[in-house]
Design a protein around this nucleic acid. Structure first.
Lengths: 355, 355
DNA sequence: CTGAAAGCGCTAACAG
DNA sequence: CTGTTAGCGCTTTCAG
């Protein structure tokens, strides 16, 4: 019903100047008399003018818009990182457009998809897609738009990467459990193809080895990062004749599932079983008991990623191509010393039908 | 280092045809000989061509991209609705670009901001911003881009609205508690300026009245939708000489906070106190005990919103201007009959210094 | 300090 | 079935 597609031509006419003057006045580029500028701005105001981004893009000017490509907008660890990147972008005076096609763990967007949607309007693209295909990455590499990968774990790409550590943090967590006297420490993995999970698992195994503990395959259970799988995995663990005294989950949501299963089984945290997660999502510090977990410095990661991307967008190919930030163990209340009787198999509260 | 900015001119040259033929062949519009089409597509393939969205937008063609404006990308109820809208968009063959400026509850983006970023490339805009200013809405109304409001509660706009019910659902929840024999039912509100919270509160009060229960101001505590405020509010509630036997929180996250506070206080859910939330975020069904809550049909809402927006984008101003979906009470394990002794003030486990 | 012309990549509208 | 022309809104030359 209403229209407000004022262009600079309308403004030019209203202000009695040329379009070029309008452009200059509005963008603050080049010389414009103060009086003229005021006149132009007044006209723009009245017309409710807002510039047409597409037209700007079309002739190659910067848009101050960054694209953010994410694989799963619903995972809590993901929203945390999106938030961090959003803050970083804002601080850098950039707007952020988030794009995702696969909410349900379906197919990832292909490079052509991305370029089609984001290519025309963004100065650069940040990708938080741990499981991107090599094909997509290769395509992006060949594209003309600068790309920075966030929390990408493999080394098979020439694209710059900013990431948080998975290995050391997870190793620290398990070492801490060992130091607390735990000898039967279980690991609930994420999706088997997730590189993040694999690194966390490697940290687990190396910490075990460093503490002189043998790796017990029966203590390694596969999950898929969802809370429900953490619950199921833990149930299975607790049904074993020799249950673990500590559980390390590849992410916080599974750790919550583990805590629920433990409570449902009538055991206490951390008196009977300690639980550690990974990510430090907001609810980790609100859980009951508060969850011990590993935290990546998301704000630092976001800031570095945005900065690096902007640098590339400005044509500077010099900067670092790989930046890694250390993660840190956040000790809370879900971990404690191993129970004294831990070495004696106790299935007092286990379900019947145990064989 | 690499370039892949192939345009239809490059393709035209390579295939030995005109740009118009390329355009037609690639878009499937108009008649093109099968042989020609094949030739063109092969050339496009080789060149790694991807169309320039901005150029398309610039001459008014549809982009098949929808913009989604959200106020807080980190709230769990929000990510659920974003997911629902994403699925709906995908099903409708549209891509979705999510835009948010204020992660931290800071200023909302203004209409000019939105138009600047999204205006140039989207066919239409969905807004999930319960607290949008009237100014912004007025600006959007005057704009040329179709806009659909999602879960907007006020009636002060001419823009079409698709929303889930807050009042009836909340009323049903509280009625259910009353039916279970609860007579002291507390309400933890969301941010005082949130319309959603106000509607939920109205449902609470009307249900109380309908059940013949007097409204007790001391049982109404203000939160702000964050888990921590649910915790704090509940602590305060439990410190009272006459504690409530049921707590209804304006959203699930605060309900979780309430559950934590109750457990920390040594009380059982639902034997001592029942808890009800609102939203049915994914973790609600995984909590321990599983949370009774009110669910909005997010998928239906998303689908209706996308459909309505597309309709408007196609120039059809006929459709509904206001669609509301009923919400439903999801009974789980956090609610139960009121404890028998509920009428006797029991502060056995309350903290000292009670006066 | 200001203006005119050209063109970014693409697609409607009209010829062939 | 295919090609030509023009123009979307803006900015970058190059001239005043």
């Amino acid at each position: 019903m209403a229209e407000s597609n004022a262009t600079i031509y309308d403004i030019a006419q209203k202000a009695g100047v040329s379009v070029m003057t309008v452009s200059r006045a509005l963008n603050g580029t080049g010389y414009v008399a103060e009086k003229t500028r005021a006149k132009v701005q007044a006209a723009a105001q009245e017309l409710g003018y807002s510039p047409n981004l597409s037209a700007k893009v079309l002739n190659g000017s910067r848009t101050k818009v960054l694209g953010l490509l994410v694989s799963d907008i619903q995972a809590q660890a993901m929203t945390a990182i999106i938030g961090a990147i959003g803050r970083a972008a804002k601080e850098a005076g950039q707007d952020l457009l988030v794009y995702t096609t696969a909410q349900v763990g379906g197919e990832q967007p292909t490079a052509p998809d991305v370029m089609r949607v984001l290519g025309g309007i963004c100065d650069g693209i940040l990708m938080v897609m741990p499981g991107t295909s090599e094909q997509t990455l290769a395509d992006m590499e060949r594209g003309s738009l600068p790309v920075v990968l966030v929390n990408y774990w493999r080394t098979d790409t020439a694209l710059p990467v900013v990431r948080g550590d998975n290995y050391q943090g997870s190793r620290a967590a398990v070492s801490q459990l060992a130091a607390l006297g735990h000898r039967r420490i279980a690991f609930i993995s994420g999706s088997p193809h997730s590189g993040q999970s694999q690194e966390r698992q490697r940290g687990y195994r190396d910490a075990l080895a460093a503490a002189g503990l043998a790796f017990d395959p029966s203590l390694l259970i596969e999950g898929d990062f969802a809370q429900s799988t953490g619950f199921a995995a833990t149930r299975a663990l607790l049904a074993r004749p020799q249950r673990p005294t500590a559980i390390f989950a590849a992410n916080d949501e599974m750790a919550f599932g583990a805590m629920d299963a433990i409570k449902a089984h009538g055991l206490r945290i951390p008196e009977d079983i300690s639980v550690v997660g990974f990510d430090d999502i907001p609810s980790a510090s609100h859980a009951h008991p508060r969850l011990t977990t590993v935290r990546q410095p998301l704000d630092a990661i976001g800031e570095a990623a945005v900065k690096l991307l902007l640098q590339r967008a400005a044509g500077d190919r010099q900067g670092a191509s790989r930046i890694e930030f250390p993660s840190s163990l956040v000790l809370r209340d879900s971990t404690g010393p191993a129970p004294a009787a831990a070495d004696h198999p106790t299935s007092a509260l286990a379900e019947p039908g145990q064989g």
